[in-house]
């Protein structure tokens, strides 16, 4: 049996969502048609608006519908001399929730991964280099993930900073708060030891 063209199109379109295959897409399509037309209309409007208007912040590259995101547009924070470099907008949220950091961000939207064809220009490092040379920046805090690619990215940016005489620092990594040494894997422990500090 074949579905009508419109339903078919809906199912095919739904499959662009991550983790949604033919079966789930079918289920979603019929659920929306049968039981939740209002929700679906709202979804389509929201999707349309977001896709039309959301772009990258001109200063930090995170997602926003303005030219500058809220943090960059904030008088105090937007001109802060401290930049925290993170891999994704989710990382910005995570750091914001701690309310610990008062500077602004730079969002790479990924990390250096030559094997995937992602080089320095693909994660906006030319923009960062430009900001390092043109703006008054005192410290760059590298908060990329503690993976091999994250380390490579951090190191590359640290070299950029050195060229522009800007301090670069890397967030500490090691034993999680409330964790027990006994259950921590060897690599994390080695990192924790290598990064120990005197008291």
């Amino acid at each position: 049996m074949k579905f009508s063209p419109l339903i078919n199109e809906l199912i095919t379109s739904l499959k662009c969502l991550p983790g949604v295959g033919q079966k789930s897409a079918q289920r979603m399509a019929f659920q929306l048609l049968e039981r939740n037309r209002n929700g679906a209309m709202q979804l389509s409007v929201a999707l349309h608006n977001a896709m039309q208007h959301v772009q990258h912040c001109q200063q930090c590259r995170t997602f926003t519908e303005q030219n500058l995101c809220d943090i960059c547009a904030d008088g105090l924070r937007g001109e802060s001399a401290q930049i925290c470099v993170v891999e994704s907008p989710q990382d910005v949220m995570a750091i914001e929730q701690t309310a610990e950091f008062k500077g602004r961000y730079f969002v790479l939207m990924g990390h250096l991964s030559p094997i995937d064809g992602i080089g320095p220009a693909d994660i906006g490092l030319d923009l960062l280099a430009q900001q390092l040379s043109e703006l008054q920046i005192e410290e760059v805090i590298l908060a990329t993930n503690p993976t091999v690619e994250g380390e490579a990215t951090a190191h590359y940016i640290a070299q950029l900073c050195k060229q522009h005489n800007v301090n670069a620092s890397r967030i500490a990594h090691g034993v999680p708060f409330g964790g027990e040494l006994e259950y921590i894997d060897g690599n994390t422990l080695t990192h924790a030891f290598a990064g120990r500090k005197s008291l």
């Binding site: 490579a152 190191h155 060897g186």
Partner: peptide
């Protein structure tokens, strides 16, 4: 399982390692 601790390549040595991986891949 880990057969040994991970090598902690850093800086240019890390880039070289990534180069080896890319070539091998």
């Amino acid at each position: 399982e880990g057969a040994a601790l991970a090598l902690r390549l850093s800086g240019d040595a890390l880039y070289c390692g990534m180069y080896l991986n890319e070539v091998l891949n």
